[in-house]
Structure formats: C-alpha cells, structure tokens
Amino acid sequence: MRMVEAFHTCHGRKLFSKYSLKGTPSVIFIAGLGDSSESWDVVQDRISRITSTFSYDRVGVGRSEAAPLPRTCLDLVQELSELLSSIPMEPPYILVGHSFGGLVARLFASRYPAMVSGIVLIDAAHEYKELAYEKILPEKLISVNRAYLENPMLNREKIDKLRSYKEVVDHSRQSNIPLSIITSGLPDGGDRDDGNDDNDGDDGEWPQQEILQMEQRLQAGFKRLSTVSKIRVAGRSGHYVHHDEPEIVIEEIINMLKGMEL
C-alpha cells in the first residue's frame, strides 16, 4: 500500500488530500469541524491495507487554502465531489463521517446515492442538536448555545449551521444503503461539539452526563435513515471514538466491506 499526498484545485483553491488505491469500494473519511486529514491516520493506514482510502483537508483547514466565508454543508459536499473526481478514486464509496462530517456524509449520500455503498457515522452531529440541548441546559448557557447555532463566526470553519441543517433535512430520505452508527459511551468536556472554539474545555457548568444521554438518543434516531442500519456504543470513548478506540471503527468498516462481498 502506498499513500499518495497531493494538492488539487477546486473552485480556484488548492485542497490537500491523502489517498491509496487498492480496489473498491473506496473508503472516504470526512472529519469533524476544524479537523484535518491527520485525524484519520491510524484508521486510514489500517483500512488502506484492504481497499482504497481517501482523506482530505477542507477549505481553510490543515494544508488547504482558505475560502470566502461563511459556507454551508452543501458547499462541502460539492467540494468533496469535485475533489474525488480529480483523482483516480472510483466509486462506490463507503463514507465515514465524524461529528459534523456525519452531516456531510449524509448529504453526499442523499445527493449521490448511486455512488455510495455504505455509511459509517462516528458520534455524528444531529441536525439542530443545539435546540435539543436547550431542554437540558441551565438558563445561563442557553444564550451561549443559541449564539453558537446562529452565528457562523463562532465555529472553527465558519459554517452556517442553520442553512446547513436545513439542507440536510430537505434532502433527507430513507434509503437501503447500509448504515453503521457508532456513538460514544463517555461524556466529554465542553459541549461535545468539536467545532466550538468558545466552549471547549469543561468549566463545570455544562451538564456533561445529560448531554451524553441526549446525544445517544439523537444518534439512535439515525437508524431510521436506512432499512439496513445498526448502532454500537463505544463504551471507553469520548467524542473522538476513532482516537480512543480506533479498533471499533476499523472493525465496523471491515464488517461493512465483508458484507458487500456476499
């Protein structure tokens, strides 16, 4: 297996990607807000021994050039589609999305269902999750949480979350694409959103256990997105399951690949 590092121009901006070619399905790794392709190193290296893999830095992240802001989830999907067409990475794709990357994976699969043969969601963000949080947050944190939902300049990639959530909801439909949902089993510091600069770190005010339980309920709801879905709790992991228990993510991807051989 040889990993190729390359830059390709999408919409006039240079984007960095890292990929290996070893047959299909190709496994596409989509990071959470503010995370680069390096977030996938351990898992990508292992899966690259089995099949083709791809990870990349979104605009303004890692080694990729910046772009006019703010942007939406649909912008990210179009960017990924164009980037994949620039390299010899053949479909079908298994999309592996972490946190906000799960929303990108879902929207990509909704727009290009014929190109997607499987989806793995890793502690994936639920649309409008900030509104769900308001049911459990103390009064003094609700305005902070709402500002993070409504103001794109407060997250690491300056993503317009309200427009992005609407895009995902508008395109959402049940499919028969195999879906594996991995949710964390341990509470994190901050508000469990890897894109929130302002609320990272636990100051003792965020109700972490209640947020974990809320996240698990929201993510369990993803099962409705596919007629072939399952959920697994990573009991020793916080939000970054692919760092805390990479073997679980690797196992789910391998099981999905094996299922496609039947």
Score class of each variant (00 low, 15 high):
2 R>N: 15
3 M>D: 12
3 M>C: 12
4 V>S: 02
5 E>P: 06
10 C>E: 13
10 C>G: 01
18 K>F: 05
20 S>C: 13
22 K>D: 12
29 F>K: 05
32 G>Q: 02
36 S>Q: 02
43 V>I: 12
44 Q>T: 13
46 R>Y: 11
50 I>S: 07
54 F>R: 04
60 G>L: 09
62 G>Q: 08
63 R>E: 10
64 S>N: 00
70 P>W: 06
74 L>C: 02
74 L>E: 10
77 V>M: 04
79 E>I: 06
82 E>F: 01
84 L>R: 01
85 S>R: 15
85 S>C: 11
86 S>H: 01
88 P>Y: 05
88 P>G: 09
90 E>V: 08
93 Y>V: 04
94 I>D: 03
95 L>G: 13
95 L>N: 14
107 L>Y: 07
111 R>H: 07
112 Y>C: 02
114 A>L: 06
115 M>Q: 15
116 V>F: 05
116 V>I: 06
117 S>A: 04
119 I>G: 03
121 L>S: 14
126 H>E: 11
126 H>K: 10
127 E>C: 09
140 K>D: 15
141 L>P: 12
141 L>F: 08
142 I>K: 15
143 S>E: 14
146 R>K: 12
147 A>M: 08
147 A>L: 11
158 K>C: 14
160 D>V: 11
162 L>V: 15
162 L>E: 15
165 Y>E: 04
166 K>D: 15
171 H>Y: 04
171 H>R: 05
172 S>T: 15
174 Q>H: 04
176 N>T: 14
177 I>P: 00
177 I>K: 00
181 I>S: 06
183 T>K: 10
183 T>Y: 11
185 G>P: 04
188 D>F: 03
194 D>E: 10
195 G>D: 03
195 G>M: 07
197 D>W: 09
197 D>C: 04
201 G>C: 05
204 G>P: 02
205 E>R: 11
207 P>D: 08
208 Q>R: 15
209 Q>H: 02
209 Q>V: 09
209 Q>K: 11
210 E>P: 08
212 L>K: 11
215 E>N: 14
215 E>W: 15
219 Q>I: 02
219 Q>N: 10
220 A>R: 03
223 K>N: 07
223 K>T: 10
228 V>L: 13
230 K>P: 09
232 R>L: 15
233 V>F: 04
235 G>H: 09
236 R>Y: 10
237 S>C: 00
239 H>K: 03
244 D>K: 00
249 V>C: 05
249 V>N: 03
251 E>S: 06
254 I>F: 08
257 L>D: 00
258 K>A: 10
261 E>C: 02
